[in-house]
Design a protein around this nucleic acid. Sequence first.
DNA 1: TTGTATGCGTTATCAT
DNA 2: ATGATAACGCATACAA
Lengths: 334, 334
Amino acid sequence: MATIKDIAKLSGYSIGTVSRVINHHPDVSEKAKDAIEKVIEKENYQPNANAKFMKLKASNIIAIIIKGYANMFFFELLEQLQSSLDEAEQEVSIYYLDEDGDEVETAYHIYVEKKPKGFIFLGGSLEHYDQYFKDADVPSVLLTNDAKHVQNPYVSSYTTDNLRAGAFAIQYLIDHGHTQIGVIGGNPHSHTANDRLAGAAKQMQKQKIYFDETYYEPGRYSFDGGYTAMNTLLSRHPDITAVFALADTIAIGALRCIKDHQLDVPKDISVIGFDGIDLGQYCIPRLTTIYQDIEKMSKKATENILLRMNYHKAAEYECIPFEIIQGKTVANRK
Amino acid sequence: MATIKDIAKLSGYSIGTVSRVINHHPDVSEKAKDAIEKVIEKENYQPNANAKFMKLKASNIIAIIIKGYANMFFFELLEQLQSSLDEAEQEVSIYYLDEDGDEVETAYHIYVEKKPKGFIFLGGSLEHYDQYFKDADVPSVLLTNDAKHVQNPYVSSYTTDNLRAGAFAIQYLIDHGHTQIGVIGGNPHSHTANDRLAGAAKQMQKQKIYFDETYYEPGRYSFDGGYTAMNTLLSRHPDITAVFALADTIAIGALRCIKDHQLDVPKDISVIGFDGIDLGQYCIPRLTTIYQDIEKMSKKATENILLRMNYHKAAEYECIPFEIIQGKTVANRK
DNA sequence: TTGTATGCGTTATCAT
DNA sequence: ATGATAACGCATACAA
């Protein structure tokens, strides 16, 4: 492994000049540049990033931290983010962590080691943010969860209005004549799931539809989680005519479960999902679902973080409007 | 951000002693340990990994490098690997790179910066391996592609026998009475796809089934790639009765495409996939597919790399037997 | 334009 | 058991 010293020795120049060539500094003669670059090429020299970052007070990257690496929705959101950031010619590093890892701790490690100019969090709730980042001044954006409770001027957030969207999904089912409605997926620790559920429950109450905890079955964010939850719900309430799945992956598991009960979607049971992932439109039948506007979400996130990296500005918390994708999994009962 | 120096000053001990406490070295008094740990806790001190790795000649981690981060098959393989490595109490770091990135270059960077004890590659073909790792002695395992061509005693590989598996899939269709068979997915740069295709073509030739390049349509490893390829194939050969998709994601896209042509799977057209991902068993109808034994594959990979990390041993190249998952997407035409 | 010297936060090797 | 210090690879301020 060649180091900068080796390159210096081999090229006949000093490490100072070599360093300047590596980092494309001006004040260096063409001759020196050519000679040094030749040696670098020949030796297959790679600068040691550890040594490099140790010196730097701030790098030029934005770090994206993704919580829950099997989440297809985040994948699509990530793609959008990357293309937005590419356009702005902004370097990014991506870090994945487990669904029950501590995203703030991870971020702090990255902060210490890589000194990114900003953070974008996909998922997570940023608890104990202040504990770690008490005297840091890096702008962050939290996506899909609200950051108001973080109470930190450096943390913005863009979210879908889960409460309203949950209510909307239920109203959509009601408009199609459903009165026996179940809800599946999520867990008490997930803010997003809780809000969607709360919105759904409130809307049912408002419309005088009977709904109690037996009509809700939690489950992991996976196909299997959806299958299992649907199974439980179906054994408890065989008479339901519609189900609101708190995520598309869950809906897809439910679809399969319903089929295995010799029932038809949407004739016997209607299903509405949440997220609007690609896969939903490859399902048979195509999934009806609440679409989170990932394009707008990532645009806003990119703009905001780019802006706040340069100018000091207060954090903002915004709700992005959702839409409905009318697939083929909701039947009209009227 | 507190450094080891601050901790030393605040605790009244020297940085040497602090370092010993951090790294759980023996020769340190209980008293010093307690005092120092208290300060570390209070200051929320995190060692700077850059400085740490700069000193270390070798870390204790195994690096897993995944090429193509939207590949569901790799996700499931990764899960298996992680549980195997967890069992062996082996620390791992995971790195993703784009489908058309250079996995060897990435690995070399990681090698220089993190000095892992071993590499596991998911996907990729390790071209130019020797160019980068000429005098490194890190054991590696390549999964899903064969490493014989790498010709390096440090690189093992475990693969499904794609050639035989491709032939097997075709024979399965022939056994069910199909004689007009198309193949979709993959590209000329993918070894795996090439082998599966070659196996398929050979088997058709052997069984005197007519097959030329118009019966094959390449495509990206995605739902959309499958949809598009199927669409093209169908317009070229509306009379085919069966399709071999070179990956499950591609098969799922094809399923949707066939449906959109008002055709039924499997009545009008049969579909067989490759990989055996979870999602396939949530499809409607359940996907018939070639299952790659990811459990065995990851067990072997783990054993081999753990072994070779400790004893010097030649690389091995092994084929893992595949199986068929008999779903509901292949009809009997006889 | 180029070279030299210092320091970044750690670990490890000496002493003590 | 503990402290002092060299060394890791690099960037940079300063000197030449």
